[in-house]
Design a protein around this nucleic acid. Structure first.
Lengths: 198, 198, 198, 198
DNA sequence: AATGAATGAGACTTCATTCAT
DNA sequence: CATGAATGAAGTCTCATTCAT
């Protein structure tokens, strides 16, 4: 149970991966220790060899999702509208390729169950929004005049919009093109922004 | 059990109200038949005299929430940016006054359990977004020139943003002023829109 | 609740009739006070106006079934093989016409639930078998020589065979001709008997 | 839960044995998961470690009863009246020795609850009757003249008669000699048959 | 590293019945 | 004569977790 150090053993990683998939398929209520163990081809007590309890699995999952998604999708240099669009293009491409990762967009929805996780999730979500807000701030900084627009609100709008689009896409069982619909959303915000600040 | 006609008996209404509150306090998993009955001061079987099963309670709840919220907050005449802002001002005021209604903003989060409810929720959510999209369309129609902006995307951004703000407010136990933060969000979108189309 | 005198009120008779039908459709487990009341278009407590409890309904049912069936099908004069065949022809015709009455053939199967009914059912079944045994005795009496055959066993064989045939017919949802298959059964016994005693 | 392979674990076998006994004592309604678990000295959930659900227990029970009874009582060589009598002698002896097995004679009575079991039971009952009918056919084949008698009807009569006798014996709490009364029944049929075909 | 067996708590639901009105 | 509201007991089943091996 080397999990405490931040690194996961191979087996732990398998467990977390299956957990992500199960949640992505049937929501948080689909993740039970029984079904998880069945999926791994072991019995339930075996899971407790690798994680202290179910909460620990979810916590590890949060870390993995954050790393997977946000390290692969650094937001750092996206200081122009087009860079922003490109960034979300990469996100939608990633989700299309591996839909289970969409869970990362809805982390908050399953935090309510376990109070221990609530803090983790909230911090994570706040971090994401702040990062995005910082991008909006720097976008505006590079554009000369005009009254400054609330960067936090912009970030909230974009993040919220993305969530809704991804949710619909999943409710429709990923049958339509997320990349297309997603890009329309992001450019819509980017354009209104550009129009305003131009 | 006159619930079928669309009208609820007094007792049914009590049950639904308590259910809304319980969900708003602890999420969908906090709503169990046992706890609900305890809250009402009766035993579990008593609930089954008023509703066929738990799903029927949730279904009635959906209808009540929709009626309560959207009949009190008609979106019809909001064909100008300022009318739109005023509309959401009323929403935030309503939620501040009766936080349990915030559940209405997150209906989708608890639909996953029961397939029968999924359809209901999805139709409801789609309806809301379409209504809002129609408003954006007519706002733009009344403003002469400029390339048309995707009304659906605007609706998604706004709805998504509102969800995120309300969620944060609830996670922070309603300690800050929702009306203020919410208005900032809505005006941010309205302004960028105005700037663009001006 | 005049039921004690042996006579049923009109309402009591309605209740009993519906009970018979429900049992005939779904077995004893299909007869619940709730469903029975729904079928009658009243609420459950209303049933308790007419019968003391569920057992009383079943007891009344036993009496009705016995009267209905065995008064309509007197076994008295069936002292010849052909009269016996004719008697069972009438039984099969009756069941074909009103399948719900088939319950009478399986009275014992639901007696196990309520100890109060066990005695009733057993006496009733014994009576039927004894009547039939008497018939066999008189048939043999009218036929001159040969070692006497155990009339009780003959009655048991015939009654048991009839039960099995009727049961199969009902399991097959009354899709085939009970009268035909039933007559084959009865004549088979009658013939072997005739052959023996001839 | 190796039950799928047809073999039962030791614990599964214990569960099934207790289930048989409980049904034999109080009918199908006496078999509840709670009482079954109490009988085994464990809690209810423990049962679900060994069988998927209650139906699975009943299904296993059917298989065990069939194997127990019919493998110990092969009907194959009973092609003469006396062999037939001997066969049923062995059945009655078996039931006397282990009355709980009498349940096997009434399998159909508890199948009504679960549709999944209905098929199993019907097939099983049909098989038994067909086997017995085949015996009657071969008995008659070995006896020269006379119009052929309907073997299926004979099988039905015998099976039905046996059921009735065993039922009475159990209702009388096994107080009288089943072997004696049973043999009288079987020989009665065998004799009439012999008489006829002689 | 994993299993077999079990558990306490609790989920939803149904049953026959009662009581005040 | 009937209803509306409720109840205690019981039903099947699932959950996360533990313990000895």
């Amino acid at each position: 149970m080397r999990e405490l150090t931040g690194e996961l053993t191979e087996r732990q990683r398998q467990i977390v991966d299956h957990a992500i998939e199960m949640i992505s398929e049937g929501g948080i209520s689909a993740l039970t220790m029984r079904r998880l163990s069945e999926r791994l081809g072991v019995t339930e007590p075996a899971l407790y060899r690798h994680f202290e309890n179910k909460t620990a699995i979810l916590a590890a999952m949060l870390r993995v999702l954050e790393a997977e998604t946000y390290e692969r999708l650094p937001l750092d240099g996206a200081a122009t509208p087009s860079a922003l669009v490109a960034h979300f293009d990469r996100l939608f491409a990633l989700l299309t390729e591996r839909p289970a990762l969409a869970t990362v967009v809805f982390l908050d929805e399953f935090a309510s169950t376990d109070p221990d996780l609530q803090g983790m999730v909230r911090r994570l979500l706040a971090k994401n929004r702040d990062r995005l807000a910082a991008v909006f701030t720097s976008i505006q900084a590079s554009v000369p005049p005009g009254a400054p627009i609330d960067a936090e609100s912009l970030a909230t709008l974009l993040l919220g919009g993305v969530r809704l689009v991804v949710r619909d896409w999943r409710l429709d069982e990923c049958r339509w093109d997320l990349a297309d619909r997603g890009r329309r959303l992001v450019t819509t915000l980017a354009e209104t922004l550009t129009g305003r600040t131009e």
